[in-house]
């Protein structure tokens, strides 16, 4: 949804800033929310019951939650963000890919 529509509907302003480990601190409008980062997706050949649990059964956390954000209009890293669902306070941000530092460094 366009930023303007969000503003009209809620008279609210961009208040989340995410410190991307690659790009630095940016407005959340550059990012796309992914989902619950704590989910471990089963193997592709895992039974339907395991997949059902992973896809449909979600916590509705009040407080700090681990979630994924995609730096869509930036470096395109998927990030794991610890964010308070009450205050929007962000406790930590890191790349989802565990070896990302190694990979990006070996490039340069």
């Amino acid at each position: 949804m366009s930023g303007a529509l969000v503003l009209i509907q809620s008279c609210t302003v961009d208040m989340i800033r995410i410190k991307c480990p690659y790009c630095g601190e940016r407005d959340h409008s550059e990012f796309t929310y992914g989902g619950d980062a704590s989910i471990k997706y089963p193997a592709l050949d895992a039974p339907e019951s395991e997949w059902t649990k992973a896809i449909f059964f979600r916590e509705n956390i009040r407080g700090m939650q681990k979630e994924t954000w995609h730096h869509t209009n930036g470096c395109r890293l998927w990030l794991e963000v610890e964010r308070s669902t009450i205050t929007h306070e962000i406790k930590s941000v890191k790349a989802c890919h565990p070896q990302i530092e190694k990979i990006t460094k070996s490039k340069s």
Partner: peptide, 13 residues
Amino acid sequence: MSWLEELLQTRWT
């Protein structure tokens, strides 16, 4: 595009 990136960066690292 976002989906392929998500798979490679979060699931099949």
